[in-house]
Design a protein around this nucleic acid. Structure first.
Lengths: 133, 133
DNA sequence: GTTCGCATACTCGGATAGTGGTTGTCCGAGTTGTGTTGG
DNA sequence: CCAACACAACTCGGACAACCACTATCCGAGTATGCGAAC
């Protein structure tokens, strides 16, 4: 089990947008070049972030992606949910009568991680960035 | 991203072995029937637990699987590691100069979950089981 | 009664295959900025 | 000088393909148990 590369690209893009300049519009080509991905693939990932309401896309010449006004509230968890979906990491598909105790344990452990990720805002990390990411 | 079904089967098997009777030997057929899996597939999963030193397998007539003496120390995390491997959930494969801050955030969040899973012993959960699981 | 051998029940592990999700690529369509042309 | 038009740059989104991990099955090999036959 691993987080997908798409999640990685999404997180890096968000942090980069926040670090460089939250108002600046950046073309997918520049972003793709920076992260060494194909532009069309990155575009597909960013579309998910657009649908989740985190960034805005501008078509046409000089178009690109830009953070939306409410960007400072966005957490790591938000981005991950947008890409991976918000399903639980663990599903007990066995049909026992009662609620599955194992399921409960796994979910509560997962919550620990999610709480940490909800606290971590993209904006906080963007401040720490110097050149890269 | 999801935990595999194999992990679910492994956890259920461990809890079941601990609940029924830690010394009792159970055939893979009974176990498979209980969890509604094919015996050969479950056997393949349990082999990983054997190699991790959690259970012992006995060949031949009246053979089966049994918990090893040290079973009470086994945590959820141990079982998950045995099945899924102990790699980090998140790998930043981008080559930036410095250490990736995003990677650090993800790893620390993951640790929160892992700590919880390390505290949860199979034996503790086995006590809560009545009939099923 | 004891021992040997065989059938039986069982796990082990490699080979194999289906399936679904991830990772990409390709391309046509739509959109915006810019420059050019014609009045 | 201004308006209309054409072109270039760019994103959008669907279709499609390669790849890999997960899931699962099959079967031959090895192993322990128990029963029966032979001495």
């Amino acid at each position: 089990m691993k987080y997908s590369k798409a999640t990685n690209y999404a997180l890096h893009t968000m942090v980069y947008l926040a670090a460089v300049s939250p108002d600046k519009r950046l073309g997918v080509q520049q972003l793709a070049e920076r992260f060494d991905v194909s532009p069309t693939y990155l575009s597909k990932i960013l579309t998910k972030l657009v649908k989740a309401g985190m960034i805005a896309s501008v078509s046409g010449a000089n178009g690109g992606y830009k953070l939306k006004p409410s960007w400072e509230k966005i957490s790591f968890m938000d981005v991950i949910d947008a890409i991976e979906g918000s399903d639980s990491l663990f599903d007990c598909n066995l049909n026992h009568q009662s609620d599955c105790v194992i399921q409960q344990v796994m979910e509560s452990a997962e919550e620990e991680m999610e709480n940490k990720l909800k606290k971590q805002k993209i904006a906080d990390i963007a401040k720490k960035i110097t050149v890269d990411h």
